[in-house]
């Protein structure tokens, strides 16, 4: 099979699987997080909702990965919701990373360079956000 056809076949088979798996995982975390919040911390949710509405929490939703994992182990509902959002943002990262690895394997260096640029752009996004 020619190289381009083989690349397209792998991309068409694996990309939907990757997208669907991560999306479903994220949705499970978000639904479980909302159910936990509704069951154990409804007042906390309402207080935060009104604080967000008044603009008090803009720029204040930062949370370190270590702290997040610790809170998830404690069953903190808000941390489970945050994890769901983190997992959602993995969708594009994982998809581009998958293409990058595929193109390295296929030695398609033009597309290795293009996907590397997109990956770098996504990582720069995290850095730009972290510094303000």
């Amino acid at each position: 099979m020619p190289k381009q056809e083989e690349e397209n076949r792998i991309l068409r088979e694996w990309t939907p699987f990757l997208l669907r798996t991560i999306l479903i995982t994220a949705m499970i975390f978000l639904v479980v997080g909302l159910v936990l919040t509704y069951t154990f911390a409804p007042d906390y949710y309402v207080d935060r909702y009104h604080a967000v509405q008044q603009g008090h929490l803009i720029g204040k939703e930062k949370i370190g990965h270590g702290v997040l994992l610790g809170r998830i182990r404690e069953g903190n509902p808000h941390a489970v919701l945050t994890l769901g959002l983190f997992v959602l943002t993995l969708v594009p990262l994982a998809r581009v990373a998958f293409c990058f690895i595929l193109f390295i394997r296929e030695r398609d260096y033009t597309y290795v360079a293009l996907t590397a640029y997109v990956l770098a752009g996504l990582i720069v996004g995290v850095l730009v956000g972290s510094v303000g």
């Binding site: 997208l19 999306l23 967000v52 769901g84 995290v126």
Partner: peptide
Amino acid sequence: GVTAGAGALVFLARGDVATTIAAPVAIGVT
């Protein structure tokens, strides 16, 4: 997905994504 993902990563890293709002909105819009 990648375009919005790039923007979302900046917002998340800056602490500008309100979990309380974004979580139900993500479920509902999907």
